[in-house]
Amino acid sequence: MTNTIKEHCDVAIIGSGPAGLSAAITLQKSGIDNIIVIERDDEAGGTPRHCGHPPFGFKEYKQILTGPKYANKNVQRALKLGIEIQCKTTVTNLGEHGELSLATPEGLKTLVAKRVIIATGTRETPRSARFVSGDRALGIYNTGALQAMVYLKGKIPFKRPVIVGTEIVSFSALLTCRKAGIKPVAMIEANSKASVRWPIYYSHYLFSTKLLLNSKINKLIGKNRIEAVEIIDKTGQISTLDCDGVLFTGMFTPESSLVRMSHLAFDPETYSPTVDQQGRCSDPAYYAAGNLRQLPAEEGRNPLCYAKGQAPQAVNVSGFCWDQGREVAKNLLKDLE
């Protein structure tokens, strides 16, 4: 861990999703040319890269695109402007005054940036943090994992899953299943109505998947691979549903452990960095943008609330994150002057 190379830049952006890239593009266009976008994945573009379905990009490109096409457009735009994107590079620590620790395949590095924008996005809450009874069989996933498997690798992790949740993302999952030849056996929702309204709400009829309201997973069955799930309804009635997988959708939570482990002020309610109206963190060298920044939920965010099926956090669409990246970049510009 010694002998790390020390580099400098004006602005370092962590994450090459819509928020990070729109911030980078805005800054570059305003004449800041010493920007580095840091991306831990092997390709740039962020979460949309894994979402081979529409709708993406209407705000930005006046076109309805699939996620990968949209991500590619963003990346090409940034590269054309001469923005440097370093892939396979992970930020492992946020130090005071913009001193970042990086892990790269070539070795550990330190990058000192005058300003940093953190745009590390969100992910869904996995089964473990929802406290679901049962063994740890194969076949338990979130939508993000399913989509990456289907769209990036052409593989499927199950053929007849149960989908848990009825957020927007749950219907992306349904769409993805249909495209990949996966036939979900049911969608289940703890509340008395689906979390999203028409028109998406009715799409489950199109795909002939049954929607079980007022229902929760009681237990996952199967030792090596999921074989069935026990479902409990409002009256306490338990039934068994044969399936070969369970997809836990939604309940987005910020990918914020980097912030949590750092000196930056952290909001324990939203799991997001504490920011002011400019999007600035408690250390003035840092800003935050995109889905990493969550609005407070009505209920607390601890896993027990999730387990009780209380209000999940919504995820913002990419267009919103794009706008926020640009806004934060503008605020940062004022502050750099």
Binding site: S128, A145, K155, I156, F158, K179, N224, R225
Partner: peptide
């Protein structure tokens, strides 16, 4: 719990496990 890496793992472990991560192609 695999949100980010399951896809890459399914590829890296292809034909290695009796119970594979992926059960087929799209």
């Amino acid at each position: 719990q695999g949100f980010y890496c399951s896809a890459k793992l399914s590829e890296l472990t292809e034909n290695k496990f009796i119970e594979p991560i992926s059960v087929g192609e799209t």
